[in-house]
Design a protein around this nucleic acid. Structure first.
Length: 811
DNA sequence: GAGTTTGAAACT
DNA sequence: CAGTTTCAAACTC
């Protein structure tokens, strides 16, 4: 696209070009490193002390994974194994990857933005050191790396020497183990080599965009994985694709910040809820990668977690950091990226069959995809969040799909709001389907044919009007919005537009990263939930002590967050977002003549009302209005706040589909913070208001379209609840969230299940008639999650009544 | 493929 | 906050 930065609509706030790199030898980085304490000398007991040095809390792996971790060299460097303990404390590099310049500005203060760079720059710089480097000007390493990037291949050696020398730590530099397990050096070499291959046009991109060093590094890593001799074009495209991936990584890294030290999020105990943590995802990916490296054929049993729960909300983490939130709620950015990168690099040698194996397992990570495509030499990273029940679409690079064999492309999986739940397998299919095109390399004639076919397919797809493509991938077709408004599906999903998009004058590209994020910030300032998933799936079947509620909840009680506003489509066409998402309309909808096959608004309202009528006790705590209450309550049934109440401990931000930026949250912006339930409760109950989140840039934009959340009190890690709490969310949302808790606290049969706190007391009991009184409701008293299905518990008579009312409503 | 319809997003 | 406009996807032909 002819998008020149000069015409940047938003502002050319962007990126301050990075001028020439300072002489490497003069970088203060050297002196800084020289003072670092060798990580290996750190004992577990000194974590407290270390904590002051390392903002990143230790990562705790449960014993079942210790061997695995060891086996995969995850523990070799910075890990601390407590003797006689089943817990391995893996001290993770506090890699705050801030690819996003916008975030970088914010995060640098409290995080080691340069950590990842350093980590990459010198494999011998362990995490501890890296973590400590947060004190260091973030640009130092970046500058070093830039220097390495910009220097010719011949100078790579010199660069490395400089870097190594800068550490002045023989222990760090001489460790063959580190060398072996931390192929960063190789990566650097490879990347620098590649950089030498880049044409002159590429270099400026690497070095001129502020805050992109990390992304660049990761890009380089990815490139290094499989690319030995890539053409400049390949590098360029690949780079672009990776950047998308990196955004996600960033989000992941930031997201992890929100996890408390003691939380088991990092325990790789098949805790699906944990997978919602980007950090976990990262680790899992890493683990999976590593695991596959060694045991590819055996499948990802080690990572048998349900990736479907993955969701990301980078914002939260970053904001938490920025706000200097307390450690309990906003742990220092904790990324695990180091591991990830490490594994990535280690996975460079992965064969495609390994990927096939992974794909078959249902666990596909960014790493997997990245590796997969790297192996194919034509793809860039992508992120997949196999969220069961979550719709993901692949925002793919048409070129990739069509030209993958010959050209580099990137793709990103989105979770589309409109699609039915797409199991991980679906994603696999997508990838696998692509594989034949992109993977099979060998026969020249075949390749040529495939390329031709791919090109044809690509053109066909690109011409196709509409975003969705047969493969489930989406691409926008924006013409006037510059892809910087929510009109743009890509932008809304938190992903960059792809080359395959048919958009015009597109600014939603990595080149305009700053613009994109600025715009996002603006939008979020108007509507903090703008990039939140539109649809969330709320499963309460597993609600402890509230099992009966499951009876009146549909198996997948997903609902559109805001509800639709259809007037003419009767919610029978994809114009309707609810219909598009395969979710029933709810009281939040303002649709007319709703005939949504997944459930009409009337059904929803009736069910809810019926339930409450059947169980007036609940009304005592929650009702103060009539049906309006229901509607009002439904306004935010899936709001982050609401979700946060459901399972604060299991926050799951998602941002873009297949989970990607249509698992986005990327950012989406999704600012999901994993906050201890107790904390959240207390904060909520304390009248909230504390700005746990600040609307800021979303590092990564992954906005899963469908969130799955479970009961508020389900702390089980098995439950993936997506809880997002937005302190900056409208008060109404907070209140709604609160009310949800109140409602959940009551079982249908009037069994009170330890209501959240005394706040419920504030809710005045209302007469049983309150529900239908028609009075204006009080949001705080309204349950936010209406029953999606008939309250089976309500007996047949009720059902009969319901049917009759339904008929009336239809009339 | 062009044109229309639709409803979300953006604007006022 | 409501009404209007803009926008792009969905849809129709």
């Amino acid at each position: 696209m002819d998008c020149s930065p000069e015409t940047n609509p938003v502002a050319a706030t962007s990126s301050s070009p990075v001028s020439s790199s300072p002489p490497v030898q003069e970088s203060p980085f050297s002196n800084f490193l020289s003072n670092l304490t060798p990580i290996n000398t750190v004992k577990s007991e000194s974590y407290t002390q270390l904590g002051t040095f390392l903002p990143t809390p230790p990562v705790v792996f449960t014993s079942p994974h210790i061997d695995l971790l060891r086996e995969n060299s995850f523990l070799e460097r910075n890990d601390i194994v407590e003797a006689g303990s089943n817990v391995v404390v893996y001290k993770e590099c506090n890699t705050n990857i801030v690819q996003n310049p916008s975030f970088e500005k914010e995060v640098q203060l409290s995080s080691a933005s340069g950590c990842i760079d350093e980590y990459l720059a010198d494999p011998k710089v362990d995490c501890t050191n890296s973590a400590g480097l947060h004190l260091k000007p973030a640009n130092d390493v970046s500058q070093l790396l830039r220097s390495g990037i910009t220097v010719s291949k011949e100078s790579n050696t010199e660069v490395h020497e400089v870097i190594d020398g800068s550490t002045k730590n023989e222990a760090l530099t001489s460790s063959s183990q580190a060398e072996e397990n931390m192929p960063s050096r190789e990566l650097i070499e490879s990347t620098t080599n590649q950089s030498s291959v880049k044409n002159s046009d590429e270099l400026p991109r690497f070095s001129s965009v502020k805050g992109k060093e990390s992304a660049i590094n990761v890009d380089l890593v990815s490139q290094a994985q499989s690319q030995g001799q890539n053409t400049s074009k390949e590098v360029s495209q690949h780079h672009r694709g990776i950047r998308r991936h990196l955004q996600f990584e960033t989000a992941v890294a930031h997201k992890s910040t929100t996890f408390g030290n003691n939380e088991s999020l990092w325990s790789l105990t098949h805790d699906t809820a944990n997978l919602r943590s980007p950090s976990n995802l990262t680790n899992l990916r890493t683990l999976a990668s590593s695991h596959f490296d060694n045991k590819a054929p055996s499948g990802p049993q080690a990572v048998s977690c349900d990736t479907s729960q993955l969701s990301f909300c980078p914002h939260d983490s970053v904001r938490s950091v920025l706000t200097g939130g307390n450690s309990s709620t906003s742990a220092p950015i904790h990324s695990g990226i180091g591991l990830h990168l490490n594994s990535v690099s280690k996975s460079t040698s992965m064969s495609s069959d390994v990927f096939s194996s992974r794909k078959s397992t249902g666990y596909l990570s960014t790493t997997d995809q990245m590796l997969d495509h790297d192996i194919k030499k034509d793809s860039s990273s992508s992120f997949i969040s196999g969220v069961p029940g979550e719709n993901y679409s692949c925002v793919g690079d048409g070129q990739q799909e069509s030209q993958s064999a010959a050209d580099t492309s990137s793709f990103t999986f989105y979770s589309t709001d409109g699609m039915p739940y797409l199991p991980c397998d679906s994603l696999h299919h997508i990838l696998v389907d692509q594989q034949p095109v992109s993977c099979e390399v060998g026969d020249a004639s075949q390749d040529a044919n495939k390329v031709e076919e791919s090109n044809q397919l690509s053109q066909t797809r690109k011409r196709r009007k509409g975003a969705e493509i047969s493969d489930g991938c989406k691409r926008c077709n924006c013409r006037k919005s510059k892809c910087l408004k929510l009109y743009c599906e890509c932008f809304a999903a938190g992903v960059f537009c792809l080359d395959s998009c048919a958009c015009e004058n597109c600014y939603n590209k990595p080149e305009f990263e700053d613009t994109v994020f600025d715009t996002r910030q603006q939008i979020e300032s108007r509507n903090p939930l703008a990039f939140a998933p539109k649809v969330v799936k709320h499963e309460i079947d597993s609600l402890p002590n509230i099992t009966e509620e499951a009876d009146w909840m549909t198996p997948s009680s997903a609902r559109h967050k805001r509800g639709c506003n259809c007037k003419k489509s009767k919610c029978l066409k994809k114009y309707c977002e609810c219909y598009q998402a395969n979710v029933g309309c709810s009281g939040a909808c303002r649709c007319d003549g709703c005939q949504n096959p997944c459930g009409t608004k009337a059904d929803q309202e009736y069910n809810r009302a019926e339930k409450w009528e059947t169980h007036p006790a609940e009304k005592l705590d929650t009702i103060k209005g009539g049906n309006d209450c229901i509607k009002a309550a439904n306004i935010n049934p899936y709001s982050p706040s609401w979700e946060g109440l459901c399972a604060i401990s299991n926050l799951t931000p998602l941002s873009h589909p297949c989970s990607s930026m249509k698992v986005s949250s990327a950012s989406s912006s999704l600012r999901n913070t994993k906050i201890s339930q107790s904390h959240l409760q207390s904060s909520k109950l304390q009248s909230s208001g504390t700005g746990r989140f600040k609307v800021g840039r979303s590092p990564v934009i992954f906005t899963p379209q469908v969130y799955e959340s479970k009961g508020p009190y389900q702390l089980s890690s098995d439950d993936a609840s997506c809880e997002r709490t937005y302190d900056d969310a409208p008060e109404i949302l907070k209140e709604a969230s609160y009310t949800t808790k109140v409602v959940k606290a009551s079982s249908p049969n009037q069994k009170r299940v330890s209501p959240p706190q005394s706040r419920a007391k504030k809710v005045h009991s209302s007469s049983p008639r309150g529900l239908r009184s028609g009075r204006k409701f009080i949001l705080q008293a309204v349950p936010s999650f209406p029953p999606l299905s008939p309250y089976t518990d309500s007996k047949d008579a009720i059902n009969d009544t319901r049917n009759s009312r339904k008929d009336n409503n239809n009339i």
